[in-house]
Design a protein around this nucleic acid. Structure first.
Lengths: 115, 115
DNA sequence: CAACAATATAAGCCATGGCTTATGCAGAGG
DNA sequence: CCTCTGCATAAGCCATGGCTTATATTGTTG
């Protein structure tokens, strides 16, 4: 159920902004903080969430860390979306015209045209 | 930017649960409340969020309303994901091996947080 | 080792949002 | 017309989470 983490990670606008920067090119933590006008700790926290969701990876470079976007998290979410898509289509194929009345019919039900 | 609403709508587990039920088949509000073990107002609120994100639609049936999942919201999100996917791939193609050391010798640095 | 640099973690503050109960409102039927 | 049913909206409570400052950790360098 990793898609859940991906969804909540990308739901936050600030975090999504960071991710979108990383999707274009790798950045250092300090760089992101400056560009996004956030404190460095805040960026670190967001990066941890993105990392837990497999949306980013990082490499050490001395005392610095280069973060970059990863495909893994996106893939998780895409798979989930596709299964939902399939369900929705199947549901339409099954009961398209109008939802049936499920309540037990009381007595003589007069079928009237709605509206 | 409708994908933002879709992301935050699906980020909540309860709301996602409701959406997944609707993806399988249409439901009435009271049905959802009973199945999800939530109060009816809570379900109504979730349905409003899902509706604003174009993830569900509804039809009136007397005093009842039949909600069903819609493809529109999913499509918004899928489009966004694909553009992110493309960005990530392009970034890898551009600077794959290792992020270059870009730091020129400097002297000024300030770590300050904006207010 | 001392001093500095870059990032991570800790702790606390505050707004957001999800849940509940109470209430409003429209449609169906006696 | 009155009432009941099914849902929406209002109001308030409380936990979650994102932001900040302060501090710890790790690596580099003289």
């Amino acid at each position: 159920m990793a898609y859940a983490e991906v969804l909540s990670a990308l739901a936050d606008p600030t975090r999504r902004g960071l991710y979108e920067r990383l999707a274009r090119r790798p950045h250092r933590v300090g760089e992101l903080a400056r560009l996004a006008r956030l404190s460095q700790p805040s960026v670190s926290q967001h990066l941890r969430v993105l990392s837990d969701a497999a949306l980013v990876t990082h490499e050490r470079d001395g005392t610095r860390r280069h973060y970059r976007a990863s495909r893994a998290g996106l893939d998780e979410l895409r798979t989930y979306l596709e299964s939902m898509w399939d369900d929705v289509l199947a549901a339409y194929a099954a009961g398209d015209p109008a939802p049936p009345k499920k309540t037990a019919p009381k007595k003589t039900q007069m079928t009237r045209a709605p509206r």
